[in-house]
């Protein structure tokens, strides 16, 4: 720990608990080719919490997640995990601490669920080390926790969307990392399966104490399941904090360009965004 010159951006106390598995970015710029997608981002994602990254299409949510997970090198600035620059860490060392579920993972042809989940043990294995009891235990646990144990001998490409997503989460779990990044884990799923996946994430956090960072599309779901929320617009930070603190009508209008009311969720009390009806829809509804 050299005397880090960067200023503390928020007044948050850095308790020992919060310091573990804390991802943060310092003046981060991310580029795709010539296009600057994320610029000047200073962000701290609290350790031990569930963080949701939200924002309109093309605001840089997924790009940010790629930057946080070392898949995309920063054009400027840095990403640190508990103070260490992740782009200077050996790939395998980082993989022991951080797992990722990409938005559209590639399922290898004809692979079975268990074979897929076993691949999550890759960072724990040396070149010639055999499959160990620890490995098998981690795989069994991951299968059990995601409810995919009964599917273990099924080919992944023949599963339903929800089952497949759970198999992929099981792979990330078998990696056995404190920190889990999920890129839109609920896209292409119906409501039942969306809730299944989010409940699973919540359980992982509550029971296993994992730190979760996920990109979500649905503001209501984000508010319901996240402890911490990061709102992006045009690659810049629009707001960050607990959903209850930051999610209000002004924020939704300025970020999504939608007029709305924000009311407490009748089930959970978390903020719920209700878009205001446009004149067109009203007339259509009354007709």
């Amino acid at each position: 720990m050299t005397g880090a010159p960067e200023p503390r951006m928020t007044g948050e106390q850095e308790s020992p608990m919060a310091a573990a598995n804390q991802l943060s970015t310092q003046a981060l710029d991310l580029r795709y080719g010539d296009r600057l997608v994320v610029s000047g981002l200073d962000l701290t994602l609290p350790g031990g919490a569930v963080t949701a990254i939200v924002g309109p299409n093309a605001c840089g949510k997924s790009t940010l997640l790629r930057g946080l997970s070392r898949l995309l090198a920063p054009a400027a600035g840095s990403v640190t995990l508990d103070g260490a620059d992740i782009h200077r860490m050996p790939a395998r060392a980082l993989a022991l601490r951080m797992g990722l579920l990409p938005q559209q993972p590639v399922t290898p042809e004809a692979i079975t669920v268990e074979a897929l989940v076993r691949l999550g043990r890759y960072p724990h294995q040396r070149l010639l080390s055999p499959w160990s009891a620890t490995d098998q235990k981690a795989v069994d646990e991951a299968l059990g926790r995601t409810g995919t144990a009964v599917l273990r001998d099924h080919p992944v490409d023949q599963l339903s969307g929800g089952q497949r997503q759970r198999a992929w989460i099981a792979l990330a779990l078998a990696q056995d990392t404190e920190l889990l990044l999920l890129d839109e884990p609920t896209t292409f799923l119906d409501l039942r399966h969306q809730l299944d996946v989010l409940d699973l994430v919540a359980a992982l956090h509550a029971e296993a104490g994992r730190t979760v960072v996920m990109v979500l599309h649905d503001l209501g779901q984000a508010a319901r399941y996240a402890d911490h929320m990061v709102v992006l617009k045009d690659g810049r930070l629009a707001a960050a904090g607990t959903p209850a603190d930051i999610l209000d009508a002004d924020l939704v209008r300025s970020v999504f360009d939608v007029d709305c009311r924000v009311i407490p969720d009748p089930e959970t009390g978390t903020p719920l965004v209700i878009p205001k009806g446009s004149a067109m829809r009203h007339s259509a509804a009354s007709a």
Binding site: L71, A91, L100, P102, P105, P108, Y122, A172, Q175, L181
Partner: peptide
């Protein structure tokens, strides 16, 4: 045969393989 494990991880696509610590 020795490097087969890497091949299997590569099958997952570049993003997942990268996240598993494979260059």
């Amino acid at each position: 045969l020795v490097l087969h494990r890497r091949l299997a991880v590569l099958d997952l696509g570049d993003d997942s393989a990268g996240a598993l610590g494979l260059n």
